[in-house]
Amino acid sequence: MRPILMKGHERPLTFLKYNRDGDLLFSCAKDHTPTVWFADNGERLGTYRGHNGAVWSCDVSRDSTRLITGSADQSAKLWDVQTGSQLFTFNFDSPARSVDFAVGDKLAVITTDPFMGLTSAIHIKRIARDPSDQTGESVAILKGPQGRINRAVWGSLNKTIISGGEDAVIRIWDSETGKLLKESDKEDGHKKPITSLTKSTDGSHFLTGSLDKSAKLWDTRTLTLIKTYVTERPVNAVTMSPLLDHVVLGGGQDASAVTTTDHRAGKFEAKFYDKILQEEIGGVKGHFGPINALAFNPDGKSFSSGGEDGYVRLHHFDPDYFNIKL
């Protein structure tokens, strides 16, 4: 395959997200402007100007009209996808890290970093249908985990929130009462900070990637460990194919150590693993730095990766990918 290279960002990529139809790709980077691209040919559709810090993550509503972004400028913003105009700003006292719309797009979960004596927190916000009715009040604020919460997403039926972060523990919270329901145990769980968390298409299981050089597949309901994928580099980003039983891990040596070694030793490929057999299928090379973000098109026929090198690489699979055998 010949990947499409998108060079719209001047700083390392942080997050990638496809909309539900798979025709738009949203990219966030440490420069301050999230960008939307056409996912088929990589043409830039527009940018969302207004943040004043690195943008850590984004989510798009199911009907692709609203975008929410979380940024290090201590705010999360709601945008109109079509025009790029700001609809609302949620202000916090510390950088916003992870954002995720609930099913139905009436709620959103936003995590904030520990900052200046404040502990990290998970905020649940109500999203109004009409942006003029939008308020900044939190429905609930969950606190407890030590260190940064790198990712928090909604569990099945919006009843739970799954979070993972620097303390390497995966937690499942009750989204209504704010109570902690489950924690991953020490033996099964990750040993180092969790960098990424992705749900499967049906939400029945989710995948976490960690700096302990592994990715783990968990059951959403019971938080039991299903599979472990071991690799030889820290994992920064994970994604799952919605079409085949494939798991993709991206990462590479720490960005600060890249210049000290040969680029071939950095292992900046996106690694494909068989979801069930836990065996490596192959690697896709291309980035000049660690991969920070990965996303699979909802149709499963293409995926994109965003790297520390500032490039988004959009890969449309060759036909032979779909009948690859171990």
């Binding site: 395959m1 010949r2 990947p3 499409i4 290279l5 998108m6 060079k7 719209g8 691209w37 040919n41 990589g42 043409e43 830039r44 490929e269 494909f272 490596e280 299928i281 192959g282 690697g283 896709v284 090379k285 291309g286 690489r313 890969h315 060759d318 990918y321 690859i324």
Partner: peptide, 16 residues
């Protein structure tokens, strides 16, 4: 500006 380019290099899924 050429923000979007098609890679000149053919990238394959490299099998282990």
């Amino acid at each position: 500006s050429r923000l979007t380019m098609v890679s000149t290099e053919e990238i394959l899924l490299e099998r282990p």
